[in-house]
Amino acid sequence: MLLYSSITKKVLMALAGLFLVTFLCVHLGINLMLLKGDGGLMFSEAATFMGTNQVIKVFEIVLFAGFLLHILFGILVSFQNRAARPTAYACGNSSETSFFSKYMFHTGIIVFIFLVLHFIDFYFIKIGIVAPPPGIASHDFYHRTLLLFSSPWYSLLYIISFLFLGIHLNHAIQSGFQTLGWNHSKYMDAVKFIGSAYSLLITVGFSIVPLYILLSK
């Protein structure tokens, strides 16, 4: 893995990243089922399907691999990049660039921290590593979610995390296209627009759920 060329590393990162982006879409769809107001019936059904279907189980492994790949390569590449300029400039760079693009590593770390918390709160409980809170079954994601979002602090943390994810994605999507070589003067503006729109959708979409739960409490 270390020996992969710089472009190969970036390409694998981009592929994993774009895969994760599509996963977010599925995840968002399931989350939005919470808004249906059917007492979590549809949401739980979907959660059960995701937890038991054999095909999805395979995809779960792929998904974890995607996370791992994206994160490991991200760290590796960042260290290499730092090594490429051992002496820093005395006068910081003021070139015109997209502001967010310079902070992919930082936003990535914040999203990663959230991801760990998210795993502890849901996945680890499901597989039994962490004990569920009293009164909630380990596979009962619906009540678990309601409980978490009933805390304004947790909701705030959640929303902020998705804000950073949105920032990350805003650059990431068009960047992924560029890395994969899918850059064409005819389409690049559209790609950039779709990327920004999608990142907005993810941030807003995921943030609606805690807000809805908080407000409807």
Binding site: S6, K10, S95, E96, T97, S101
Partner: peptide, 12 residues
Amino acid sequence: FGNCSNTYACEA
């Protein structure tokens, strides 16, 4: 040399 982060400072 480092990797590309697509910040596009080079083009600028």
